[in-house]
């Protein structure tokens, strides 16, 4: 059971998961733009075409809507496609197939079919790619019953959650922050899964709960370290999945700390933080709150090109530290 653990990158972990899934099941195929000899826009697929051939590592034309639909049709009829969008922004071109078809087909047909489809979305800002290649659109898909929407934050989790997603009978949407691709971390060899519906407490604390997604988990952990130096004990929760949301873990944490900050890169308004805040407001944890709930999210703007403006458009460590300190000390 105890597989050797090595340090590998987030993108290597994804590639390893895909290779394991393909090795184990001939029905698993990869589809996407330039994922073959090119290796994918972020080199996530790498050299898998050499191992599995062009029939299973399929370059699609630049046809996001059609490509997504082909993946849906293939999933319904017996394949297990893993479909890569080159950038999550391009999901806008394919929303019809994701939202109207993949998410609803099982329900509309009264349970006669399943759609075992995995879609991967390289997301987020920080690469200087500006407004059409930098968005965090996970809340769009998180709003759609029938989909499962996850945001793994570590190499360990992305491998285990991707393997769980491939085995899952329903469509799973994986949002991968592009700045995480090169991040290294301990990853066991071989097959293992991480549940698609469980948050993880990354750091325990007493004074404030910071619920974060994706890359913001790492910023929240950095902030918690700074706060610890100031005598503030922050608990950091990695939400991991936004559909479903692990209510139990978040409610338990807020009951313990009595304070909540939500940190996410997507646009603040109507985002993941709004949902977490409302969930706590409706829960038994409400009576435990000693301070208002805070949301730190992306600015109400497109992502700008200029690097300083780009950083200013999404939450950074000092803001998280300030927000937590203010909440705990009652200064806002």
């Amino acid at each position: 059971m105890n597989a050797p653990v090595r340090e590998i990158s987030y993108s290597q972990a994804i590639q390893e998961a895909m290779a394991i899934a393909m090795e184990a099941d001939e029905r698993v195929i990869l589809m996407g733009e330039d994922i073959g000899v090119y290796g994918g826009a972020f080199q996530v697929t790498g050299d898998l075409i050499d191992r599995f051939g062009p029939d299973r590592v399929m370059d699609t034309p630049i046809s996001e809507l059609g490509g997504a639909g082909v993946a849906v049709g293939a999933a319904v009829t017996g394949l297990r496609p893993i479909f890569e969008f080159q950038f999550s922004d391009f999901a806008a071109l394919a929303m019809e197939q994701i939202v109207n078809q993949a998410a609803k087909m099982r329900y509309m047909l009264g349970g006669a079919v399943s759609v075992p489809l995995v879609m991967r979305f390289p997301a987020g800002s920080g690469t200087g790619a500006a407004a059409q290649h930098s968005q965090s659109l996970e809340a769009w898909l998180g709003h759609v019953p029938g989909l499962k929407v996850i945001q793994p934050a570590t190499p360990h989790d992305v491998k285990g959650m991707l393997l769980a997603a491939v085995a899952d009978p329903d469509p799973v949407m994986i949002f991968e922050h592009k700045l995480l691709y090169k991040m290294k971390g301990p990853v066991p060899e071989g097959h293992y899964t991480v549940p698609l519906n469980k948050a993880e407490v990354r750091r325990e604390g007493r004074d404030v709960s910071i619920v974060a997604t994706s890359i913001m988990v790492h910023k929240a952990l950095e902030a918690a370290e700074v706060l610890a130096g100031e005598g503030v004990s922050a608990e950091v929760i990695d939400l991991r999945s936004i559909r479903p949301i692990d209510r139990e873990t978040v409610v338990a944490s807020v009951k313990k700390t009595s304070r909540l900050i939500c940190v996410y890169e997507g646009v603040k308004t109507l985002g993941v933080g709004a949902e977490i805040s409302a969930m706590i407001a409706e829960s038994e944890a409400f009576d435990y709150l000693d301070a208002p709930i805070l949301r730190l999210g992306g600015s109400e703007t497109p992502i700008p090109y200029n690097p300083e403006l780009e950083k200013a458009a999404v939450p950074q460590v000092p803001e998280i530290v300030d927000a937590a300190r203010g909440l705990v000390r009652g200064v806002r």
């Binding site: 029905r27 195929i29 029939d55 809507l65 059609g66 490509g67 997504a68 639909g69 082909v70 993946a71 849906v72 049709g73 293939a74 999933a75 319904v76 009829t77 017996g78 394949l79 496609p81 019809e96 197939q97 109207n100 078809q101």
Partner: peptide, 15 residues
């Protein structure tokens, strides 16, 4: 809506 889905079903048949 059914057009790409049919193509996907045909992909399964071929694979």
């Amino acid at each position: 809506g059914g057009l790409p889905i049919a193509v996907g079903a045909a992909l399964t048949a071929k694979r």
